[in-house]
Simulated scan of single mutants.
Amino acid sequence: MPSPLILFFMIIFLLESTIGILENSFISIVLGREWVRCCTLPPGDMILASLGISRFFLQVSAVLGNFFTYYFPASKKLYFDTFWIFTNMVSFWFTTWLAVFYCVKISSFTHPIFLWLKWRISRFIPWLLLWSVLISTFIIIICFLKSYLAVQYLVTGNYSEKTTLDDITGTLQRHFFIPLQMFIMSIPFPFFFASTISLIFSLCQHLRNMQHYGAGPQDPSVQVHVTTVKSLFLFLILCISYILPLTITTIAPVSVFSFWFWVWEVVMYSGISIHPAFLILNSSKLRRALRKMLHDHEAA
């Protein structure tokens, strides 16, 4: 039975994960249904739909993996860890492509390469999403096979009389899964960071131009810049709050039975629970669907 303090953070983690699952389910259902009906979506909505689906499975795998590990033997923990890393990789790549797409479409830079990207980014998005999934799948298959063979070798080979399956999976988690996760996330993060900073510089440049021509901050193009920068800058902060606990748990591993483990989980997944709400509010299509759903609920 967990202590009252651990139980408190377990409940907080479960509540914020439930909120995130519901939000991402809403995004996935609204945009996924239109995707199936029309056989296509605008590139931005295509990324949002893919991101909602990947985050839905990410949070489901996190909840199942954490509670399964706490309450039951860790004999299947390898499968949860593998699926969690896969969904995490895919989600982070999709978030990066969303930032890149907004940066290219909204920024007002006039460099030839940037203008070339602005005209072609919409064609690239389906391929970028597909290749993100394929590359993540290839990496995770290799990782799973390596980890599975390592576990089988240690278990069947009687590596040590004091070695338990918990020790093996814990060692894999500390020395393989988490470092791998951080390495993989470090690849798209510079693109995400650069896109966010570029949008901020573009906004500043655009504001100066608008002031020169006598336009104010209420100009529609300025509002689009501001709204997008707010969303990406918020998620940049939330990404840091996600990566920092991962770094800490890599340097100083924390057991699932520790109070600090559940504190880090609450901090890490708060961003994934908060950010979908901003995506919904910043999308006119999702806002209309939300208003319609609430209106139908009140009418019923």
Rank of each mutant, 00 (worst) to 15 (best):
I6R: 03
F8H: 05
S17N: 09
E23T: 08
V30M: 06
C38N: 12
T40M: 04
G44S: 09
M46W: 01
L48F: 09
A49H: 00
L51T: 08
V60K: 00
T69G: 11
T69Y: 10
Y70S: 13
F72I: 15
L78N: 05
W84M: 14
A99F: 07
C103G: 07
K105F: 14
S108A: 14
L128Y: 04
I135A: 06
I135D: 03
F138H: 11
I139D: 05
K146H: 07
L149G: 07
V151F: 03
Q152C: 12
G157I: 14
N158P: 02
Y159C: 13
K162T: 15
F176H: 01
I184H: 00
F189M: 10
C204I: 14
N209F: 08
Q211H: 04
Y213H: 11
S221Q: 08
Q223N: 13
T227K: 07
T227S: 10
S231N: 09
L232K: 00
L234W: 04
I243R: 02
I251K: 06
V254Y: 00
F259T: 11
W264E: 08
V266E: 00
V267W: 00
S270P: 10
S273Y: 04
S273I: 12
L281M: 13
K285T: 14
R287V: 15
R287H: 07
L290W: 03
K292N: 11
K292S: 15
D296G: 10
A299W: 04
